[in-house]
Computed example of a mutant assay.
Amino acid sequence: MSPVFVVADDHPLFRGALTEILRSLPEPPTVVEAEDFDSAAAALVAHPEADLMLLDLAMPGTSGLSGLALLRAEHPGVPIAIVSGTEDPAVVTRALELGASGFIAKSSSLDEIRAAIAALMRGEVYLPKGVTPGVERDPEVGALIERLKTLTPQQTRVLTMLGRGLLNKQIAYELGISEATIKAHVSAVLQKLDVDSRTQAVISLSKLGLDLDAARAV
């Protein structure tokens, strides 16, 4: 049975290029493509035993690392490598802290991408040449990352929607659960993040660097 890879990128040309690279591997995988975050999440639901996901940080439907945090919480057994136009060491560090298995720069050559895939399939952590993740220099951000790791998948999903500016009623509709349940989730999220309001929760996420406008432009 061939391996299953999910390629999640909103740029058709780059997504197609990744797919062609994957299909040229010695053991060509089944490739599932996703053009936005919702279809990426649906792809993992449909293929929970996927061998690897290549995830763009700047797709419609999510902001930067928040998508990674959500998918890692929901599918802890699927390796997820970030594919991004940014090589900022701080972003790389935070991606790894949030559970990424590797980080591939979009400026990489075809051979480098093949080498990255091979390393990831061996269970190794792959990073771009010359990029070394450091230690989180901001103690507040480091503490926030640890708090994010304590959220359940549903709480992470709710937090992501708060970051999108959705109201409790809208979140309840999207998730198909009661508004009272959403209120309970929001309260739990605020407690775990050690903040007093939804606004403070969103501000905390911005400190983590979840809204990567520079990456979204690439």
Rank of each mutant, 00 (worst) to 15 (best):
D9G: 00
A73P: 10
E87T: 06
R137L: 08
K183I: 06
P3Q: 13
D138N: 13
E146T: 01
L190D: 14
S206G: 15
T62I: 13
S66L: 13
L57E: 05
T150K: 01
S187V: 05
P48M: 09
E179I: 11
I82T: 10
E27F: 08
A43I: 10
R15V: 07
R164F: 05
E33I: 03
Q200C: 14
P139N: 07
T156N: 15
P79H: 06
S178R: 08
L193W: 05
P48A: 11
V186G: 04
L167F: 06
E33R: 02
L96P: 07
S39W: 03
G85Q: 13
I145G: 02
A215I: 07
S109T: 08
V202Q: 13
G64K: 08
L190K: 11
R137F: 12
F37N: 05
A180F: 09
L55I: 08
N168I: 09
G163T: 08
V7D: 11
A41P: 04
R147Q: 05
S108G: 10
R114G: 10
S108M: 04
L98F: 00
F103S: 01
M53L: 12
K129G: 12
V7Y: 05
R198E: 14
L148P: 13
G99N: 03
H185S: 06
H11I: 08
F5E: 08
I21Q: 11
Q154Y: 15
V32K: 12
R94Q: 10
F14Y: 02
R72N: 05
R15Y: 11
T62K: 06
F37P: 07
I104K: 02
G123I: 04
E174A: 15
T30R: 11
L159Y: 00
K207V: 03
R164I: 05
V91Q: 04
L175R: 10
A40C: 15
L208T: 00
S197T: 08
A69E: 07
L210M: 14
R198F: 12
Y126M: 00
L212N: 06
S39A: 15
P89Q: 08
G64I: 06
S66A: 15
S107P: 01
K192N: 05
I145R: 00
V83L: 09
L22Y: 02
A69R: 02
Q170I: 07
L44D: 03
M59Y: 03
I80H: 01
P3N: 13
G209W: 04
V83T: 14
V131N: 09
S197D: 06
Q170G: 15
A217H: 03
